[in-house]
Write a protein that binds this DNA or RNA. Structure first.
Lengths: 235, 235
DNA sequence: CGCTTTATTGAGAGATATCAATACTTGTGG
DNA sequence: CCACAAGTATTGATATCTCTCAATAAAGCG
């Protein structure tokens, strides 16, 4: 289903994925571990909250969201995932996924059998170290998200989201001031803890003030400095 | 500074701490690793955001908060920590603490040299597994906190906080419907993403409706069922 | 091309924030 | 041990932001 060149050692993701900092021979062992890639169609669930965790997933192409689901129906989008990011780690503790992961566009994930990853990481200290770092970074980002939700107003929240995506696209070699957001207004609003109407008004104001132009999900950042100023409470 | 019986294998924390599920000999090695206990006075910083991470800390007695600090001064309390909980993990990725940890009352922490923990965990797979679980659980709890901040109203938020503390006290063998909260209104309000005045009004309403009685930080839960009903959006 | 979904805009309601005054605690020093 | 000061908590009045409800517009999909 994918191009023949499937192995991790030659993956374009490079530093963003698991084998970072490993020797060639260790990298080969990762290749053996991660030998399945799964394509997802837009809207597909990668995993569901409450189901048994058997795999972690590394996103190769595309974009996903993860959401925390409650019976009362008021779901909370807790993150957006771009290529190179590891999904499923919140389920390690109980061996049960604690969130839903849903494809925002057609995507491909590398399938990582968790118990084998755990075993292999005992043999490859750098792999273990990397897993620790990945989880620690997720905790840090969740704390930033809590700060966004807890203390920022609607404009500051959206400015932060834009800057966050701008930087993540840049880190992945995207050259320009232009971002194609992978998610709907509804997903963004949920992530920001506001209603879609409020988000829509914030967007309109940003366009008015010539911070951005936006057409559907296609955003151009006109004045990054001003945008950062709006978001500065988050610094 | 502490009673002579300082070793992990005989610690009252038992299942709440690192050596859970280890053999006697492995437990002894943990004892060697964690041989320093540090007392903290109320208000003391255990570590500061931006400083180099050398240790993780396991809380033995007392209570701490961790807060995400921003230059604009609008700090966000991101968690409250009770005995048995591991602190500092958000700093593992960059080897720099990403939050402040502050004692809410006089406390004692066990000092865990991180690099030695990492080394030892290569030799004791169960220790590594436990560390993975601890970090995964923290991610899960952060997601719950995001959900609280993003979708609940003030009453739901405070009801959740009360139930959360009630359960955590229960898990630690506290027998009754009575909780002595370790933190101020200000800390609670920050954690809940509301103002202290709003929190104070919520508290008054809960007392009026006979869900709780409260005197300063001493809370008695009168009607747990009703309280859970108030919080039910969070389920 | 029409239908369904998604996004924008407006008007009004409601929850929370802000400002201000008061009461209560806690800690300190005489 | 008391008195005072500083910090903490409560309550009220008002302002403001965001939500809710409603209508319209635009985009995506079959």
């Amino acid at each position: 289903m994918l191009a023949p060149n499937n192995n991790c050692s030659q993956c374009v993701l490079g530093q963003f994925c698991l084998p970072v900092g490993l020797s060639a021979s260790d990298s080969d062992r990762i290749d053996e571990l991660i030998n399945v890639r799964t394509p997802l169609k837009k809207g597909d669930y990668l995993y569901r909250q409450g189901t048994e965790l058997e795999f972690l997933y590394n996103l190769r192409y595309g974009a996903l969201k993860s959401e925390f689901s409650v019976v009362s129906g008021n779901n909370q989008v807790i993150g957006f995932h771009l290529p190179g990011e590891l999904l499923g780690v919140d389920g390690i503790a109980e061996h049960i996924y604690q969130s839903n992961a849903i494809a925002l566009e057609d995507s491909v994930v590398c399938v990582v059998p968790f118990s084998e990853l755990e075993t292999l990481s005992h043999e490859i200290p750098n792999l273990q170290r990397h897993l620790n770092r990945v989880m620690s970074r997720e905790i840090y980002q969740d704390h930033r998200h809590s700060h966004l939700l807890g203390t920022l107003n609607a404009e500051e929240k959206f400015a932060c989201l834009l800057i966050n995506f701008f930087e993540r696209f840049q880190q992945r070699g995207h050259p320009s001031q232009t971002i194609d957001l992978p998610m709907s207004r509804e997903d963004m609003a949920s992530y920001l803890g506001i209603q879609i109407e409020t988000l829509s008004r914030v967007i309109s104001r940003f366009v008015e003030r010539q911070l951005i132009t936006i057409k559907q999900r296609h955003v151009e950042i006109i004045d990054l400095a001003k945008l950062k100023k709006v978001a500065e409470n988050s610094v």
